[in-house]
């Protein structure tokens, strides 16, 4: 098994005799080792939460952004290689503006997700390149209401009511499945569930310093980061 597979996991992405793409699977592993990110769709909006950790006491966590604003109404969290993610976030931002110019309307969340995944898919089929080692968790509000999507390195994407990517995401999804209600309001119920889930899967007593939470609601349709005070008000 080991010997057979070796020839198929080198520089380019080609099928193994078992029909697998090893490079893509290794990229998925990079995602699994990424920091946990949680996304929840509420009745009136969506929330994304990520775990934030200083690898050195000298690190200025306040200046580190782990959730990216893509367009006014869309944002995303990432799990995996940060440098790869930046490329995709830049791409998403440009695609959003192209949609705005072309149609005079903000881009739908699924349309954006699909465009990102078209790019990702390309990087699993073309020679001389490697797949993106990153999954995006995209949240936004469009004409269909609040939306949560995830993408993976293969270029597949899924729509969710609540989900997690990155480290311990299986446990997070289990916890979400037990506690999620589709009727829950964004504030404070969905935000609280988001924080509870993070605390459940990250083996620490997380406080507002160790997380970043962003929301987008169906009224204002503006993707905004919660302040530490706002997070604290939900924590108590």
């Amino acid at each position: 098994m080991m010997e057979r597979s070796l020839a198929y996991d080198r520089a380019i992405t080609i099928f193994s005799p078992e029909g697998r793409l090893y490079q893509v699977e290794y990229a998925l592993e990079a995602v699994r080792r990424g920091k946990t990110a949680i996304g929840i769709k509420a009745a009136n909006g969506a929330v994304i939460g990520v775990h934030k950790e200083a690898t050195s006491p000298l690190m200025d966590l306040d200046q580190i952004q782990k959730i990216y604003v893509v367009d006014k109404h869309i944002g995303c969290a990432i799990a995996g290689l940060h440098a790869d993610a930046r490329v995709l976030v830049d791409f998403s931002r440009v695609q959003s503006q192209i949609n705005l110019i072309t149609y005079g309307e903000p881009i739908d969340v699924e349309v954006l997700t699909k465009k990102v995944c078209d790019l990702k898919q390309n990087y699993t089929q073309v020679g001389g390149i490697r797949p993106f080692g990153v999954s995006l968790l995209i949240a936004g509000v469009d004409s269909q209401g609040p939306q949560i999507f995830t993408t993976d390195p293969s270029g597949s994407y899924w729509s969710w009511r609540a989900t997690a990517i990155g480290y311990n995401s299986e446990a997070a999804r289990e916890y979400l499945a037990k506690n999620y209600k589709p009727t829950m309001k964004l504030m404070p119920a969905a935000v609280k569930l988001c924080i509870d889930t993070l605390r459940q899967v990250v083996e620490e007593k997380l406080d507002e310093e160790a997380m970043e939470i962003s929301i987008v609601d169906t009224d204002k349709r503006e993707f905004t980061q919660l302040t530490k005070e706002e997070i604290r008000s939900v924590l108590v």
Binding site: I101, T102, Y103, G104, D108
Partner: peptide, 18 residues
């Protein structure tokens, strides 16, 4: 097909303009 909803008049007009 891409948006799974029909194009709005405004969007079609903007597209034509482009």
């Amino acid at each position: 097909l891409e948006n799974r909803r029909s194009i709005t008049v405004q969007a079609a007009a903007q597209l034509l303009s482009n």
